[in-house]
Design a protein around this nucleic acid. Structure first.
Lengths: 147, 147
DNA sequence: CGCTGTTCTTTGACATGTCAAAGAAGTAGG
DNA sequence: CCTACTTCTTTGACATGTCAAAGAACAGCG
């Protein structure tokens, strides 16, 4: 017997679905004006956080929770734009090592403050500290559920 | 001067981004096993909620918050699968009117209980009533911000 | 060593979305 | 009524993601 959603659950679920659609699309729009897609930004910032700013595809993809194929495709596009570069891995000839170019780092440095403002304006600044804490707790709990 | 995120804000934001990626992808995976994409399901269920189960593209797209182009493309694909049908609008020769086929309704009826379980198992059932209320309030507030 | 099976990255085919342009059909002002 | 603008849907070109297959290189074991 299926348990349908109660009225309050239904309302909440609709609101959350809307959030999950609308917020990322707004942030994406803001980023696009700076010449980057959300995916581009994630790649650049993930790469920039790695000491040495270089990373093999497998671990890189794992860190980003992307499929290797997706990262390979996307990295190829970003490489052709001069944002990142690829070298053979001296330790394992199957592997490539990606690293930020100066241009890529520059682009990230240009975009980061604007993106941060965007996250604040469109999200964080509208939450009380308590709400923020609840969100973190809930989001972590849900995301950590078994796949 | 850019205000960087405080440590707690940073943690919360990362958790929420993870939720926003992971939850929809899990729900999508579950739905796929029933033979539908998330988009398919949304189209079918939105259409089924409309009295008479028929809708012109413009209002339909607006209701779903999809671009008309997206809906047109997607509806064409679903039409070729026999899930929905299109008729000329007698009142406005530019318009089409979409409606569920019996097959489409059947597919939805088959998939709905499973999807509902999925939403519960992967999300709703892991929240306290208080948390659910906070989420609804916050999600609504954020989504209602100006674009 | 030499096989055999595994791991890693890339590739190609395909599904889905976006954006801009095209076409057909409404509507309003003179 | 005409003309000019607007609205509506579809279409085509392109960007992005998925999945499965291909190729190259590794690793373990006889």
């Amino acid at each position: 017997m299926t348990r349908w959603l109660a009225a309050d659950e239904e309302r909440a679920w609709r609101a959350i679905r809307r959030l999950i659609t609308v917020l990322p699309s707004r942030l994406a729009r803001d980023l696009n004006q700076l010449g980057l897609s959300t995916a581009d930004y994630e790649v650049l910032s993930t790469l920039s956080e790695k000491p040495g700013r270089r990373w093999g595809l497998k671990d890189f993809a794992e860190k980003m929770q992307w499929s290797r194929s997706r990262l390979s495709h996307h990295a190829a596009r970003m490489e052709s734009r001069g944002l990142i570069e690829r070298e053979p891995d001296p330790a394992d000839a199957r592997g490539s090592i990606y690293h930020l170019t100066d241009a890529g780092f520059e682009v990230l440095a240009q975009a980061a403050p604007g993106h941060l403002d965007s996250v604040r304006e469109r999200f964080i600044d509208h939450l009380s500290p308590e709400e923020l804490a609840v969100l973190e707790r809930v989001a972590t709990r849900i995301a950590d559920l078994p796949d």
